[in-house]
Amino acid sequence: MEAGERVAELTHEAAGLLEAQQHVYPGMDIDGAVDRILWQEARRYRVSITTGNTHKTENARAGLFADYDTTAAGDTLRRQAETMHFDDLRAWMAGFAAKVIIKLEELGNV
């Protein structure tokens, strides 16, 4: 995306995301916004990674984002990166899913 090799895909995705929000912002100029994103380099990147025990330390997590600054060059405001550590993600997700199911069942009986 940053190298401009997938402009058609980026145009399509950006326009779709903006069109989905047009009911909230009816005066939004979608073509103008896409133009800014693509040609005026208003792109921003955000990477979020769930880590396990192999990336528990700060140095190990930093290694996940090696070369991020050269791939998406410029001010750090252009690129954000974060991690969330779970000792056992599967157990956490199973517990979370169980809570969601209970809530959905409650809502279905309203």
Rank of each mutant, 00 (worst) to 15 (best):
R79Y: 12
A94V: 09
Q40N: 11
D75P: 11
R61D: 02
L64Q: 11
Q80M: 05
K56H: 11
M84N: 07
V47Q: 10
L89F: 12
G95F: 02
A98P: 08
G74H: 07
Q40W: 02
W92L: 10
Y25K: 05
M28H: 01
E58T: 11
N59T: 14
Q22H: 14
H55F: 09
W39T: 04
A60F: 00
R36P: 00
A94C: 03
L89M: 11
L104D: 15
W92E: 09
A60R: 13
H23A: 14
Q40M: 04
H23D: 10
T83L: 01
R36W: 13
V34Q: 00
H23N: 05
G95R: 09
Y25D: 07
W92F: 11
N59V: 10
K56V: 07
D69L: 00
T54R: 12
K103I: 02
M93A: 15
L104R: 14
W39H: 14
G52V: 02
T50D: 08
R43S: 03
V34M: 02
G74Q: 04
R43C: 06
F96W: 12
R90N: 13
R78D: 08
D35K: 02
A91R: 06
I101Y: 04
D29G: 11
K99F: 03
L77S: 15
A98R: 06
K56S: 14
A42G: 09
M93D: 13
H55V: 02
A62Q: 09
V34D: 11
A91V: 12
Q22L: 10
A73I: 07
Y68V: 10
D75E: 15
R61Q: 15
Q22D: 02
T83C: 14
L38M: 11
D67E: 09
R44E: 14
T70I: 08
V24M: 04
V34I: 09
A98F: 03
F65G: 06
A62P: 05
I101W: 01
A62Y: 04
D67R: 00
R46C: 05
A94L: 13
L89P: 02
V100Y: 10
P26W: 01
A72H: 10
R90C: 01
D75W: 04
Q80R: 07
V47F: 02
